[in-house]
Design a protein around this nucleic acid. Structure first.
Length: 280
DNA sequence: CTCAGTGTTCAGTG
DNA sequence: TCACTGAACACTGA
């Protein structure tokens, strides 16, 4: 489920569990798709015995800063996750309702497991292999990360700046929100939530948004992202009024929110849930 | 058995 | 070259 709030939560997990400590055990699963063709030995040798000096994030990318270069970078793709093991933390379900561990207690779909000198341990998993782990000198030197626009939590542009940007765009606003070069960190659920809350139809072209609508958009991005980060991306704490619950939550076929019909259609290449009676 | 899918990248089109 | 679209990627779970 990794969009900005989930990845920020992951970053904080790494910060809590590993920063300031030496990595004394590192298991890197030899999956040449996830490892982008790097050998797992090389990745392992970069992290084993190093001290983690900080945990970074931009958009949906995150990285481990180490006392020696290169640093370790990762992206969780669609279904990847990273969590601390051994702590009775929130029960995050990473793959539907499937159990997180196999019979031996080992995480399912394990890609990487790191243990700090004090025994704290994190595991990264991905059942779909769309996540990536790689080495790089710094975020600035990484091709993908340097292409990102401003991070929507740390450096959201002003409403005026956003309006200026949107004025040149002929794509649907939904597609623009998903464009990481413009709004780094927004993914499918945040885009739908923000448009619902700002009462903007997802098919509207970027250039058609008025300054007032852009202001509403700006405010809702701040609100949705800020709140989701604050609660550690724990969906159960999202307000009942959020579209999220009807869109992704519990009962399937629940396609109404406060009595209004929710439509699902492909916009910007993604399934988009929106409420025609509320979004103009 | 079929198909959708919370992301990114790249080929193709105009 | 730019702006944008859609398929591919690889696999799980419904």
């Amino acid at each position: 489920m990794p969009e900005l709030p989930e990845v920020e939560t992951v970053r904080r997990t790494i910060e809590n569990a590993l920063v300031g400590k030496k990595i004394v055990e590192a298991e890197i699963v030899p999956d040449d798709i996830v490892l982008k063709g790097h050998s797992h030995e090389l990745v392992k040798s970069a992290i084993l015995g190093r001290t983690v000096t900080a945990a970074g994030r931009k958009g949906k990318y995150f990285w481990f800063e180490l006392d020696e270069k290169p640093w370790l970078f990762a992206h969780l793709g669609m279904a990847g996750w990273l969590r601390e093991l051994g702590e009775p933390t929130i029960r995050l379900r990473e793959h539907g309702s499937a159990p997180m561990e196999d019979e031996t207690g080992r995480p399912r779909f394990l890609k990487m497991m790191l243990t700090a000198e004090d025994g704290r341990r994190i595991a990264m998993t991905d059942g779909r292999r769309l996540s990536r782990i790689w080495l790089c000198e710094s975020p600035d030197k990484d091709g993908a990360i340097s292409k990102l626009g401003p991070d929507c939590f740390l450096e959201l542009p002003s409403a005026a700046e956003i309006h200026q940007k949107l004025a040149k765009k002929q794509a649907p606003i939904k597609a623009i929100l998903l464009d990481q070069a413009i709004f780094a960190g927004i993914g499918n659920w945040i885009a739908d939530e923000v448009l619902y809350m700002a009462a903007i139809r997802p098919s509207r072209l970027g250039s058609s948004l008025s300054p007032i609508e852009t202001k509403a958009l700006h405010a809702t991005i701040q609100k949705v992202v800020g709140f989701a980060v604050q609660v550690g991306a724990d969906k159960e704490q999202f307000p009942d009024t959020w579209l999220f619950h009807s869109r992704w939550g519990g009962k399937k076929g629940d396609d109404r929110i406060e009595g209004e019909t929710i439509i699902r259609e492909q916009i910007g290449g993604r399934t988009t849930a929106w409420v025609p009676s509320r979004q103009k």
